[in-house]
């Protein structure tokens, strides 16, 4: 159908988007790679010298990097475990018929729309504060010592906050997937005497596998770059107890003014994200019949 004329028009229509995205991808990334090979401190501008792989060497052999790497992985895995299992349980529950479905759905989805700085500060002050927080009040009324969440268990507290924000996402997607489950197949299995557990394991789980993979991969992309929640709650501390890689790169480049080191860290983050992205892209690509 498409004529030579319409092809040219189509190319013209696509090109602004392509050019902009290409520049957005290549220019800053190229500069980061360039900076990562320089000895470049913002406090001594104009004194840049070539540093070879020194920045990478210092960044990768710094104990803070390994702490940050472990924290990043713990954060991602912790949030994924809570949101995926919680999301499956919640989706199964909300898929049942009950009174007030619409309202409960709205209540469950709401946290996803709360901006990260708000959710982090609300949890930090109104709930986890050891003096005035709701948890402290509950502990005191039970005669227990209030627990100082963000200094005793900073990373676990941040995992809780981030999981609260992402649980709705997992629930919503898994619920959408559940609703496309073949009801007749379910009923047929029930007639044939398959138990609830067997039906769940052999029908529901395989049906959900694809959606779970999508949830895991997309969340991983976002969770690898958690930043605001750490900035407003712990500033990465105490020490490096809750520093992840994005926060470390930010601290290195904009708080310590070490542009070279920060850039090397940025490239390390890009490589890590690309490993995940590779699998995600294959998932989505398989689904696309353009």
């Amino acid at each position: 159908m498409a004529t030579e004329h319409s092809r040219t028009a189509a190319r013209l229509m696509v090109s602004p988007a392509v050019i902009l995205l290409f520049l957005w991808m290549i220019v800053p990334l190229g500069m980061t790679i360039y900076f990562s090979f320089l000895r470049y401190n913002l406090l001594n501008p104009g004194m840049e010298t070539f540093a070879g792989f020194d920045n990478y060497y210092y960044f990768l052999t710094n104990a803070a990097f390994w702490d940050a790497l472990i924290n990043t992985v713990t954060l991602v895995v912790g949030v994924l475990v809570i949101t995926v299992f919680g999301g499956i349980a919640l989706a199964l529950l909300l898929d049942q018929p009950f009174w007030g479905q619409g309202i409960v759905r709205v209540l469950v989805i709401a946290p996803f729309f709360v901006m990260p700085t708000v959710s982090a500060l609300v949890w930090k002050n109104m709930f986890m504060n050891p003096v005035n927080g709701v948890f402290a009040h509950i502990a005191k009324s039970l005669g227990l010592q209030p627990f100082d969440f963000l200094s005793q268990a900073p990373l676990a507290s941040i995992i809780l906050i981030v999981a609260w924000s992402w649980l709705p996402f997992a629930t919503l997607i898994l619920l959408t997937a559940l609703q496309s489950l073949d009801r007749e197949q379910q009923e047929a299995a029930e007639m044939d005497g398959a138990s609830v557990l067997a039906r769940f394991w052999y029908l529901t789980v395989p049906h959900l596998t694809r959606s779970i993979t999508v949830v895991v991969l997309i969340q991983t992309i976002f969770l690898l770059s958690v930043f605001a929640e750490i900035l407003v709650t712990t500033n990465g501390g105490p020490g490096t107890a809750s520093t992840n890689i994005p926060y470390l790169v930010y601290a290195q480049s904009l708080l310590n003014f070490d542009v070279g080191g920060g850039s090397a860290g940025g490239i390390v983050a890009v490589i890590l994200a690309n490993i995940v992205a590779f699998f995600l892209m294959r998932m989505i690509g398989k689904n696309l019949d353009a």
Binding site: L29, T32, Y250, G266
Partner: peptide
């Protein structure tokens, strides 16, 4: 186009 979305923001924080 999608792959450009996968780039973590910290990767380009310094030059930006």
């Amino acid at each position: 186009m999608l792959s450009t979305k996968m780039m973590p923001a910290v990767g380009v924080l310094v030059p930006m």
